[in-house]
Computed example of a mutant assay.
Amino acid sequence: MSTITPFLWFDTQAEEAANFYVGLFPNSRMLSTTPAPDGTPDSSAGGVLTVEFELDGVRFTGLNGGPHFRFTEAVSFVIDCADQAEVDRYWEALLADGGEESQCGWLKDRFGLSWQVVPKQLNELLGDPDPGRSSRAMKAMLQMRKLDVAALQAAADAP
């Protein structure tokens, strides 16, 4: 059976990023590294060419491919959070050491990878059958950087 594996192009930090992500997400582990053969462009001999790892059971491959390509917000990973405490934990950890906030629960980590840190309550509010509640929750979300469950709920409940 075929599988689909996200393949992430880093400049030189694939192993560092993989170790960071594995330490952050539960049920995660490093699987393997492949050394860069002599003559590999943009790699030093003996350095790591690829690293394979799992994040919460999902397999990823990271490549040290050099500075030719960068991540953009066109591709991001969504973290479905159980509550505000989980939102806060992931938000702070992913922003640490040079990450960058965006809007509506989006951020870039220090490696330039985009993440959406989303509480499960947001989808519940946006899917509310009352169009007024869902609209008010959407308007509140559009004003936020880190998503705030209590503020989203208060906006949805407002008259």
Rank of each mutant, 00 (worst) to 15 (best):
L24P: 02
G98S: 04
F10L: 02
E92C: 14
G57L: 03
Q121M: 15
L107W: 01
A137D: 02
G112A: 00
P129Q: 10
Q143K: 15
W106M: 02
Q103Y: 13
S135C: 14
G65W: 00
C104D: 05
F77Y: 09
A45D: 10
L55T: 04
A155R: 06
A158E: 11
F71E: 02
D109M: 03
A150K: 11
G105H: 04
A93Y: 03
A14G: 04
L113E: 06
S134R: 15
D109P: 05
W115D: 03
R59K: 12
L147A: 01
M30T: 06
P37W: 01
T72E: 10
M141T: 00
V22R: 08
S76G: 10
Y21Q: 07
L125Q: 08
E92A: 14
P26L: 07
D83S: 04
S135H: 14
R59L: 10
A137C: 04
P67I: 03
L8F: 07
M144P: 06
D38K: 09
S134P: 13
P129T: 11
W91E: 12
E15R: 15
S44M: 15
A45G: 11
F53W: 06
D128F: 08
G66E: 02
G39L: 03
S28C: 11
R29Q: 11
R29L: 08
R133H: 08
V75H: 09
F10P: 06
L49Q: 02
K146V: 01
V22C: 08
Q116E: 09
V118K: 13
S134V: 13
R29K: 14
T5M: 14
H68V: 12
N64V: 02
F53L: 07
S76T: 09
F77R: 02
E101S: 06
A158P: 05
L125S: 05
S43N: 13
R59G: 11
Y90H: 12
R145C: 13
P41I: 02
A150F: 03
